[in-house]
Amino acid sequence: MSHLSAERPAPGFPAEDVARFQEFFYRRTGIQFGQAKRYFLDRRLQERIEATGSPSLRAYLLALRFEDANGAEFQQLINAMTVNETYFYREEYQFRCLSRELMPTLAKLRPGERLRIWSLPCSTGEEAYSIALHLSENWPDLETIEVEITGSDIDTRVLAEARQGVYDARAVQNLPAPVLERHFEASSPGKWRISRAMREALAFSTVNLADAAAMRAHRGRYDVIFCRNLLIYFDDPSRRQAAETLYDSLRPGGFLCLGHSESMSRMSALFTVRKCADAIVYQRPLA
C-alpha cells in the first residue's frame, strides 16, 4: 500500500469537475470515492494529470472520454486508484473451508471433471497462490483431481507482480515454516519467490467486474469464486449487479466466498447461504 506525504497539499479541483470524474469512474468500474477518500482521489488524479500533460481535470476527463481510444490511460488511472494490500493465508479459515468441505463436495458433485477456482481480485498474487498452497498442503485428492486456478484483477500492475511471484517478509509472515520452505526460495535479502511449479500452475488475467459485457466470457465457468473485500468499495446498485455477475459466473452448485465484513444477504437473494464448520459461504443452487 502506498503512503502519501501529508505535507504536500492536495490540489484544489473544482467541485463540479470532481463530481463529473467520480460519476465517470463509477460507471466504468462500480467504485465510488466518498469524502473520506477525497485527499487520496485528488492526489492520484493530480499525478495522472501531470503525467499526461493535461492542463486541468476537465481536460483530462475529456481526453479519457474521447481520445483514449485503446484505453491505455484509463488503465493507468485504474492502477493509480486501486489500493492493493494483502498477504498469504489472510482469513485462513476460508481456505480451511475450501479444503475440508467445498472441494470434497464439488468432487462428488462432478466426478472426473476439472474443478475451476477463481480469485477476484487477486492483487499481487497472494490471494490466488494461497488457494493453491492450501490445497496442495491439505487436500489429498489434488493428486488425482484436476484443479484450475485463475487470479484476476482490474490493476495490470499488480498482475505483473503476481506473475513474478516475489514477496517480502510481511506477505509471508502467516505461512507455516514448512510451507515456506517447500514452496519458496530466497530471491534476495528479505525477499522470497514462490516456486516455478506454483507460478506455472496458475493463470492471471485482467478483469473488470463492473464490465457486464466482458464478464459474459466467464458465465457458468467456475466452481468456486473468492471475491473478498472488493464489494465494500461499491454502492448498493453496483453490489447487486456484481452479485448477479458472480452468480452467473458460477456453475450450478458452485460456491462464492466473500470477505469477513461482507454479506450476500444485503445484496442478493439468488444464493443459498451455507454455514460450514469454518466459514459461511454462498452457493448457487443446483436447480
Rank of each mutant, 00 (worst) to 15 (best):
N208W: 07
A212C: 05
A212T: 14
P178F: 01
A201P: 01
A201E: 03
E185R: 14
L180S: 01
Q173A: 12
R193Q: 15
P189R: 15
A201C: 02
R216W: 04
F204S: 01
H183D: 01
A212R: 15
K191Q: 09
A201T: 02
A210C: 06
S195N: 01
E200S: 08
Q164C: 11
A214N: 11
N208L: 08
A210R: 06
A217E: 06
A210H: 12
A214M: 09
G190V: 10
A210L: 00
E200T: 12
R219H: 10
P176F: 08
A201F: 08
S187W: 00
M198R: 07
N208A: 09
D211K: 09
A162P: 04
A217W: 04
I194V: 15
T206K: 13
V166I: 15
M198Q: 14
A203L: 06
R182T: 02
P189D: 09
W192Y: 13
A212W: 12
A210M: 07
A197N: 10
A210K: 03
P189E: 12
N174A: 15
I194G: 05
S195G: 10
A203Q: 15
K191C: 04
W192P: 00
M215V: 13
E161T: 00
V207M: 12
L180Y: 08
R219L: 05
M215S: 12
L175P: 01
G190M: 13
G165Y: 01
A169K: 14
L202T: 09
V166S: 11
H218E: 10
S188Y: 13
S188W: 11
L202D: 04
V172A: 05
R193W: 04
D211S: 10
T206F: 11
N174G: 05
A177N: 02
F184C: 01
N208K: 08
R182E: 02
R170A: 12
A197I: 09
M215N: 15
A169M: 12
D168A: 11
Q164M: 05
P176A: 12
H218G: 05
M198P: 01
R170F: 10
V207L: 15
W192E: 00
A186E: 06
K191Y: 03
L180Q: 07
A201Y: 02
H183N: 03
R199H: 08
K191T: 09
S205F: 08
G190L: 12
G190P: 01
A210S: 12
S188I: 10
V207H: 02
F204A: 04
T206Y: 11
L209A: 03
L175Y: 07
L209D: 00
A162W: 03
E200L: 15
A213R: 15
H183L: 01
H183C: 07
A210I: 01
S205E: 10
N208E: 06
L209Q: 03
T206I: 10
Q173P: 05
L209P: 00
R219A: 15
A186K: 14
P189H: 06
A214Y: 08
L180I: 07
A201H: 12
R199N: 08
E161F: 10
A197K: 15
A197H: 07
V207E: 02
